[in-house]
Design a protein around this nucleic acid. Sequence first.
DNA 1: TTATCGACGCACCAATCGACGCAACTCGTA
DNA 2: TACGAGTTGCGTCGATTGGTGCGTCGATAA
Lengths: 314, 314
Amino acid sequence: MADEALSAGAVARRLGVAVTTLRTWHQRYGLGPSEHVPGHHRRYTPADMARLEIMRRLTADGVSPADAARWARQAPDPVPVDSVTRSRTRPPGRDGGGTIPVGRAGPAARGLARAAMRLDAEAINETIAHTLAVSGVIATWEGLLRPVLVGIGERHAATAGLIEVEHLLSRCVSETFAATSRAAATTGPARILLSCADEEQHSLPLEALAAALAEVGVGYRMLGARVPVPALIEAVTRTGPAAVVLWSHTRATADPAQLGALLTVPRRPLLVLAAGPGWQADTLPAGVVRPVDLAEAVALAVAVRDSLDQSRGD
Amino acid sequence: MADEALSAGAVARRLGVAVTTLRTWHQRYGLGPSEHVPGHHRRYTPADMARLEIMRRLTADGVSPADAARWARQAPDPVPVDSVTRSRTRPPGRDGGGTIPVGRAGPAARGLARAAMRLDAEAINETIAHTLAVSGVIATWEGLLRPVLVGIGERHAATAGLIEVEHLLSRCVSETFAATSRAAATTGPARILLSCADEEQHSLPLEALAAALAEVGVGYRMLGARVPVPALIEAVTRTGPAAVVLWSHTRATADPAQLGALLTVPRRPLLVLAAGPGWQADTLPAGVVRPVDLAEAVALAVAVRDSLDQSRGD
DNA sequence: TTATCGACGCACCAATCGACGCAACTCGTA
DNA sequence: TACGAGTTGCGTCGATTGGTGCGTCGATAA
């Protein structure tokens, strides 16, 4: 039988803090029972408990209590962890000819793959630009670019060829994303840091994220590929970002210690995202979030930006 | 609506300078919190922040800090966002400090170096974009970007630090060049192939060349970094470019055999350019041209394009 | 009677303070 | 070309401030 309204002592015991601390949190941070008349006992509803739970988890992760309280106070609905569905079935590409298996990614992907195969930079750019203008960054990446790049990568792994195709296409995608980022105006200071893991030289997905962030007006700092850990730490301590996204493409570059190091800097970022297929969920340090796809990464970044916009400058 | 009063650390992080520097600015230039009792912590109001913002912007433009402070100190209190004036007067900039040696590359380079040092992506982009619009790609590269990049590189080699600065600046430059390339319309088919040498992962100068080519309307194909020789040969035989530019940054990646291979493909390119400091003049195969700088590379490329235009159309 | 209330104070620690000095850059001068 | 002078960003050091959790105390709600 669930609790309808917990007393201060019960909540304190449940959270593992002193009762006085609950009172302090209430009067210092405004983090208390939603309806409470002075002089009367506090009654914590489940919604209040959820807020306090966020507070406890963030402080336990090392976030400064003031920031944690701000984050907890106006936490909208709990983060849509693991948005279900998203069935990313990969049909066996039984395409054996001179083309690229793009699965059911649609005719545009097939056209793009063909243009890439013939090293036709102009057609590549045209296709990407068109889809980008129509569908936006996220859809273009997930529905067009990633399938084609993955397809070329698989064929390249199998035949040890097509490297020039991969290079040219990557280059075109990179340029397009850069142009997209440059065209969009961002609001507010850059509070999100994008970086590849140490030795990770695959930065295209991170560029997609950058373009997607720019598209929705979120400022960011992009460090690019092959960022040594000390450099990353230095950048974090010097700029104090609200969120850090660390991309790892393969397991070889996915040293969880890098993430752990991010959590131990003086003013640690509120959110640390481990992005990319390199990371393994069970080896990630506590407090690190692992977005499943580009859309979720963007959503999280936007959430952080919004919640920090109306706080003081950390 | 944002913050009410920022701490010294928050301001420092926001501006990208060290906390000690803020204190120095306060006592040397009187550029500090309007109300501050000695011994107590500094609390920067939005008005104070606006002043510091002016200081940051001016120094990013290459103005000497003393002058910038004088200018910032007598800023009107009513916080007019930027968009004002932006008078780009530059009093004889004297400067020193922990910045990057840019020699006599001009105040813009000094400002860019400072912006890079403080990881200020916005100021970096602004400076580059402005110079690019005024002076064009070649002048921007030779007079602004290359000096600063070289300066940071040297300092990095000496101190084993600044990697994050180098990464961020490279990223910004890369994005700007990409956007430039994308904005310009090229005439005719792409008959020039740009590629890095095998294992060469330094592609920024090649991106500068790409942008410069796009600026004058010359089409190109860019393969990017780390192009294996077979992939390069494959690309050349399949697209039959009129000219190939192969970039090598260090001697380790400058195997002359790559150039030789280019000359033996069925329909060999008219012009093979060995660009970059990696190549050594005396080891180059006959028939390979070694441009001394960006301007010469562009001139050669344009010459090839023109000579092809009025010959057969092929 | 018991748990909680509001107010106050204390101990701990990170952030910051003021002062000083260093290193590196530019420029003028020889 | 070399060198001293002036500038300037920032690291370091010991002391202090402020933020934070929590214990204590008389009064009060349950």
